[in-house]
């Protein structure tokens, strides 16, 4: 991925704190709502799932697809976002 979105950069710039799930790159309003229905209302819950899946790209993307019908781009963006954040802050 040559360039990243502004949203991605914003998210990776600082600790996630109590940010809502929609702050994640690749997760917009629609996906955010679906994730909230599934119980993932904060970004850190998604991070938790990401970590439980051992940062495995394929499994995480698969999970995101299953949970909120994300498409490949969205899930890849979200994965990259969380991965960069982890590289930075974990």
């Amino acid at each position: 991925m040559s360039s990243t979105s502004q949203k991605h950069r914003n998210f990776v710039a600082e600790p996630m704190g109590e940010k809502p799930v929609t702050e994640l790159a690749g997760v917009g309003e629609v996906l955010g709502k679906r994730l909230e229905v599934a119980g993932f209302d904060k970004a850190y819950t998604v991070l938790g799932q990401f970590l439980v899946l051992k940062k495995d790209k394929e499994l995480f993307q698969e999970w995101l697809k299953d949970t909120c019908n994300a498409n490949s781009k969205q899930s890849a963006d979200c994965y990259q976002c969380l991965k960069d954040w982890c590289d930075e802050f974990l």
């Binding site: 799932q49 439980v52 899946l53 051992k54 495995d56 499994l59 698969e62």
Partner: peptide, 12 residues
């Protein structure tokens, strides 16, 4: 990879 099987990951 061996990963924790939780309520959310099990289905997957």
């Amino acid at each position: 990879p061996i990963m924790p099987i939780t309520a959310s990951t099990r289905k997957l």
